[in-house]
């Protein structure tokens, strides 16, 4: 499983990266952490003529926390997110999700931009981005643009990125201090991709839930918001009956395909269970 031949470039600015990608007309690939791309090269399912290494592009490495929200540069590694004490309060849902990303060594290399661009339907960060209505800042030869997470993911390993564009930043909206949240994932083994995962949060107003956001990972060709489950909890005070309704609504909202690891019916039920458990975590209710 030796990698196929390719050329290599290691520019220092986004504009140089974009120029190289544009010059190669879809045959060049940006190399971020390499934790998904290099295995694809090893299996020779990706055969780029040029790899454009982003590791020296300093403008992609920032973690910014402002009163508008959080901005993660595309080359921020999982490890840096987990090590940043500010993020534990600035975005605890992000931290809860990133804790499930792959393994120790992968987290030392893998990047947020790489994960977003790879767009695995079972990956955590794309799910968080969709759940939290993140904005994806990208730059290409036509200039910079911002894409809503819901529009960014278009299918398995397929995004709205043009071949000359790279992700520069993922922007997560401001996280209110008292927001309630939960993240539940079920994988075959620790660090494996999710068979199903639920990311959710809601705010409280007079003891009632509002602004519920419930995201589902691993149960469709891309991460989804589960509107019906959100509707089931908005305006309620979370109790057993509400949780049961949300679980049922979550299951009913998806129609996963069968694959080698599980039947669609299993994943359909599982996402309900993940929503149920994440909601219990959020509401501080014990398992019955």
């Amino acid at each position: 499983m030796k990698l196929p031949p390719f050329d290599y470039a290691c520019p220092t600015s986004v504009s140089e990266v974009v120029a190289l990608l544009a010059a190669h007309d879809g045959e060049a690939k940006p190399l971020a952490g390499g934790q998904s791309l290099v295995p694809m090269l090893a299996f020779r399912v990706a055969l780029p003529s040029l790899l454009v290494d982003l590791r020296k592009v300093a403008e992609l490495r920032h973690i910014k926390i402002t009163n508008e929200g959080i901005a993660l540069g595309a080359m921020v590694r999982w490890r840096e997110i987990l090590d940043d004490a500010r993020l534990r309060t600035a975005h605890p849902l992000l931290i809860a999700a990133v804790a499930h990303v792959a393994h120790y060594q992968i987290r030392n290399r893998g990047t947020v931009g790489g994960s977003m661009a790879h767009a695995d339907p079972a990956a955590e960060l794309p799910g968080i981005a969709v759940t939290c209505e993140a904005k994806i800042a990208v730059t290409g030869k036509a200039g910079a643009r911002v894409i809503a997470a819901a529009d960014f993911f278009q299918g398995p390993l397929t995004t709205a990125l043009q071949s000359d564009e790279i992700i520069t930043e993922i922007r997560l909206p401001l996280w209110p201090a008292k927001r309630r949240f939960g993240f539940q994932e079920f994988a075959r083994r620790r660090g494996d991709f999710a068979m199903a995962a639920a990311a959710l949060f809601y705010d409280e107003d007079g003891g009632k839930a509002r602004n519920a956001h419930i995201g589902a990972i691993g149960v469709a060709d891309r991460p989804l918001r589960l509107k019906a489950a959100e509707d089931a909890i908005n305006g309620t005070s979370i109790d057993e009956a509400v949780i049961a309704k949300a679980e049922a609504a979550a299951s009913a909202s998806v129609d996963p395909a069968d694959d080698i690891h599980a039947s669609g019916a299993y994943r359909k039920a599982l996402i309900g269970v993940m929503v149920e458990r994440a909601l219990r975590d959020a509401a501080g209710l014990k398992t019955t």
């Binding site: 190399l31 290099v38 295995p39 490890r79 060594q105 992968i106 030392n108």
Partner: peptide
Amino acid sequence: GAAVRSCLMLAVQAE
């Protein structure tokens, strides 16, 4: 100092 999988890193990236 960080543990990484050396099969997922190019030698040129170790510069």
